[in-house]
C-alpha cells in the first residue's frame, strides 16, 4: 500500500492512492457524501476547532480518506476532534457533512479497537450507570435539588444499558 523511498534527506514516506477506503466509508451509514467533496475548504474556514487547533483540518482529513490513507485515519485522534457542531454541514455547498463522515470513521475505528480513552471511559459510565454523571451527584447537589423542590431520586434506569452493553459492546467495544 505504501512505499518507503530513501533519499539523502532521510526517510520519505510515499503513499499510493486508492479509492478503497472512500468506498468503505461510503458504505458506512453517515459516510455517503464522501465522493461529493470538491475540497473547496469552506468547512475548514467555518470550523471553530480548526481556528484554535494547529492539527485539525476537516478538509485535509477528508482528502486523506479520498486518497485512501486508511491506517493513518483510523488510528488517528483527528476524527475524534470534531465537536459535531455541524456548522461545516450547514455551509458545505456540495451537501457533504464532514461531521457525519467523521462519525462513520469513528464507528469503523471503534470496531477495530481505536478509541480515545476519554470516549471509552465515558461510554462505559453511560452503559453501566445508565447516565453520565452518577459520580458527580454529591450531597450538596442533592440539597440544592431539595431546596428547589425537585425530586432527589433521579431515577435513571441502567438495566437497559446493561443489555445494550452485552449486545453491542461485549468483550471491548465491538459489534
Amino acid at each position: 500500500m505504501g512505499a518507503r523511498t530513501e533519499t539523502n534527506k532521510g526517510l520519505e514516506i510515499e503513499h499510493t492512492p486508492s479509492s478503497n477506503f472512500a468506498k468503505e466509508i461510503e458504505a458506512e451509514p453517515g459516510g455517503e457524501g464522501i465522493s461529493k467533496c470538491i475540497q473547496c475548504g469552506i468547512c475548514t474556514a467555518s470550523c471553530a476547532v480548526s481556528s484554535f487547533s494547529d492539527r485539525y483540518r476537516p478538509r485535509q482529513l477528508i482528502q486523506k480518506i479520498i486518497i485512501g490513507k486508511r491506517d493513518e485515519v483510523l488510528q488517528s485522534d483527528l476524527p475524534w476532534l470534531c465537536m459535531t457542531c455541524r456548522l461545516c454541514e450547514e455551509r458545505c455547498q456540495e451537501g457533504v457533512s464532514p461531521a457525519e463522515i467523521f462519525q462513520a470513521v469513528r464507528h469503523i475505528a471503534t470496531r477495530e479497537g481505536h478509541i480515545p480513552e476519554v470516549f471509552k471511559s465515558t461510554a462505559e459510565k453511560a452503559l453501566s450507570d445508565g447516565w453520565l454523571l452518577g459520580d458527580a451527584y454529591s450531597d450538596f447537589i442533592e440539597d440544592d435539588r431539595d431546596d428547589l423542590g425537585l425530586d432527589t431520586d433521579l431515577g435513571w434506569d441502567n438495566e437497559f444499558t446493561h443489555r445494550l452493553k452485552k449486545k453491542y459492546f461485549s468483550g471491548g467495544e465491538g459489534d
Binding site: 503513499h15 492512492p17 486518497i67
Partner: peptide, 15 residues
C-alpha cells in the same frame, strides 16, 4: 509517478 498532494499534505507515489 511522484507528487505532493496539497490538501492532504502527503507525498504520493503511483505506478
Amino acid at each position: 509517478l511522484h507528487w505532493h498532494d496539497v490538501f492532504s499534505d502527503d507525498n504520493l507515489i503511483l505506478k
